[in-house]
């Protein structure tokens, strides 16, 4: 199936920091990545397509666009999606994506997302947790006061991407903000962007995102519903499970 995933580029960007945001828990990654692309004035440099993606084509301001887009500005590339990556395609998608990162000599990969917590209703400011792929990545997170995920499972498309990164010795981090599981959570997206800004020295003003949070929640509800259908098949429940303690 890997050969059925096509990456098209109109511009080749080398040695960039790659930021990924795919629809997942609370749509945190997708909201954060699209906001990052818009706020930093990124331009579209390509897209990813597959005959196994749902046959949909979003259009924005009258212009048809591919649902999975590659945006870039200077030395930062963001890849985000307006559709949930179908579960049977996740492994091939992850392989293709990590090969792409290697071919472009990416300086690092950062996956933005959410982690469901039952007490999200009580949290004004969600905590952001990190998962470092290499020991160096974990030290980097710790030295910047990002709490490391201790024991647990990661599920979904990021789990497959991290596996591929480990196999191919590619470093990177996953940043997950405490989030609602099945409501779009712009507050969690703002938290994850703040953590990203702190780690990589960007100055992203998240206030406009928080100001339009309620409107976004309504506008994104259909995408959230469709994402939940995918997540049900992506063993997301594992993220609420403790792994084997005796190793």
């Amino acid at each position: 199936m890997e050969e059925k995933i096509e990456i098209h580029e109109t511009k080749r960007v080398e040695e960039a920091l790659m930021v990924l945001g795919f629809p997942d828990t609370g749509l945190v990654g997708a909201i954060a990545a699209t906001y990052l692309a818009e706020k930093t004035g990124m331009i579209e440099i390509g897209f990813i397509d597959s005959p196994y993606f749902p046959p949909v084509l979003p259009f924005h301001k009258h212009e048809p666009r591919f649902p999975v887009r590659i945006m870039a500005k200077d030395n930062i590339v963001t890849i985000f999606s307006e559709i949930a990556i179908p579960v049977p395609l996740m492994t091939s998608f992850a392989k293709k994506l990590v090969d792409y990162l290697i071919e472009r000599n990416s300086s690092g990969v950062i996956m933005l997302g959410g982690i469901a917590v039952p007490n999200r209703i009580d949290l004004q400011k969600p905590t952001v947790y990190g998962l470092g792929i290499t020991a160096k990545d974990r030290d980097f997170l710790k030295s910047n006061d990002i709490k490391l995920l201790d024991e647990g499972f990661l599920a979904g498309v990021y789990a497959q991407i991290v596996k591929e990164c480990i196999k191919k010795k590619v470093g990177g981090v996953v940043l997950l903000a405490e989030s609602y599981v099945n409501y779009p959570d712009p507050g969690a997206a703002a938290a994850v962007l703040e953590a990203f800004s702190k780690l990589y020295g960007y100055d992203i003003d998240t206030q406009p995102l928080l100001d339009q949070a309620e409107e976004l929640k309504i506008k994104l509800r259909e995408l959230m519903k469709r994402t939940m259908e995918t997540l049900r098949h992506a063993q997301k429940g594992y993220e609420q499970t403790l792994p084997l303690l005796y190793r």
Binding site: Y180, Y183, I218
Partner: peptide, 20 residues
């Protein structure tokens, strides 16, 4: 509204997202 429900041993918890 988008709704999420879960059970604890003693309760049924229903959460509804009501933006605006």
């Amino acid at each position: 509204p988008l709704t999420h429900a879960y059970e604890t041993p003693s309760e049924l918890v229903i959460m509804l997202d009501l933006p605006l």
